[in-house]
Design a protein around this nucleic acid. Structure first.
Lengths: 223, 223
DNA sequence: ATGCAGCCATGAAAATCCTCATCGTCGAAG
DNA sequence: CTTCGACGATGAGGATTTTCATGGCTGCAT
């Protein structure tokens, strides 16, 4: 799989190239938008990692040019800060995912793999149950149309629940997914996290969606 | 490489066995101390992961029996809480490393790999510079004989500095090691972390050990 | 029916970590 | 030597996450 990286900052670019190579991809790096556009038009890449901030031709312009030329490869945007406008603009122009700098490399790798597997996303990825909705890309949740702000852990937990709705999730499973922890009952982080999530997602609404199954774990479903 | 896991709690045991198998090791699991001792005596394993809390024969007894029989394989202890006595007792009995539950699987994997690479530790692993000492196993730091409490990040940072003493560590490198982050200059977490570490390790002592190299990064050394 | 034990919920405090604004300092350039 | 700009230091504030203590509920045993 060939990946093109368009990134002007030397350290970040090298880091990405090396990391992706070590992960078994073929990665090429160019350091400005113009080269990025040319290479991207060549059609030999399966994925494009595109920094928004580039000298000269910026990321948006590169993306626009590629889409205009009918290039359909998946594009992962790198944005400098968590500016909602940036994200939305990128997604509208046809980016398939984005990542806010600074980010963990493992996170990037996960997204790259997802994009390569599923190709270009035609639909924004949305998860929902009853009137609760989660826009995974924009990292935004709403219930009954009301915007809900979530922290990182809350988001991870809710995403897990929504992806597994109707399934009973054991604490050990939740711990391994959300905390990367081998669960050993000497902490109640999970209960507390569930509490926080409930406060935001269930407390002021009906019907309740998060249910406790004594001795087993939790389920998300309509009752 | 064959690894023997002695763990009574089903979930934890299965989790470990599966995780280690997926990482390319051959892992066998037994659920009580007696079986653990017998399998351990068989001599066909390269590493032993041993829970302290076991019904019947506990982890310490198993370890003692193995060492008494002259078995020299590396042993990684799992302790339930961060009880200093437990750690010390385990290490005295001849454990080579320990891990406090709950733990991240990646952490376990890292330790397993270290142990398999270096074999039995004859010496407790200590890092030092001037009158600053760090006992990596006990996760304890002292300077001029005075005990210093460190948080997780502080510990990781200090360990990095001590392992690389005399080397100039660029921010991007520190970020990748301690934060698993792709560094992008829009945050000063590193400066802040250095500040906190200096407050504990350098502020009240002479000579200073952490030095700033403008435009390059930081070094730990005696000046 | 009553009591008990285990499990879970909950609020509050504490710890840790990150962000932000401001200030100081170093070094190059004039 | 002085000035300026960039880089780093620092303190305070805030957000998030974890720990802890307590109390309630459920289902089983008596």
């Amino acid at each position: 799989m060939k990946i093109l990286i368009v990134e002007d900052e030397a350290k970040t670019g090298d880091y990405l190239k090396q990391g992706l190579s070590e992960a078994g991809f073929t990665a090429d790096l160019v350091r400005n938008g113009l080269d990025g556009m040319h290479e991207g038009l060549s059609g030999e890449f399966d994925l494009l990692i595109l920094d928004v901030n580039l000298p000269g031709l910026d990321g948006w312009q590169v993306l626009k040019a590629l889409r205009a030329a009918g290039r359909d490869l998946p594009v992962l945007f790198l944005t400098a800060r968590d500016q909602v406008e940036d994200r939305v603009k990128g997604l509208e122009l046809g980016a398939d995912d984005y990542l806010v700098k600074p980010f963990a490399f493992s996170e990037l790798l996960a997204r790259v793999r997802t994009l390569l597997r599923r190709g270009r996303a035609k639909e924004p990825e949305r998860l929902a149950l009853a009137d609760l909705e989660l826009d995974v890309l924009k990292r935004r949740a709403t219930r009954a149309g009301q915007r809900i702000d979530l922290t990182a852990k809350e988001f991870a937990l809710l995403e897990l629940f929504l992806r597994r709705q109707g399934e009973v999730l054991a604490r050990s499973f939740i711990a391994s997914q959300v905390w990367d922890m081998n669960f050993d009952s000497d902490t109640n982080v999970i209960e507390v996290a569930i509490r926080r999530l409930r406060a935001k997602v269930d407390d002021d609404f009906t019907p309740k969606l998060i249910h406790t199954l004594r001795g087993m774990g939790y389920v998300m479903e309509i009752r």
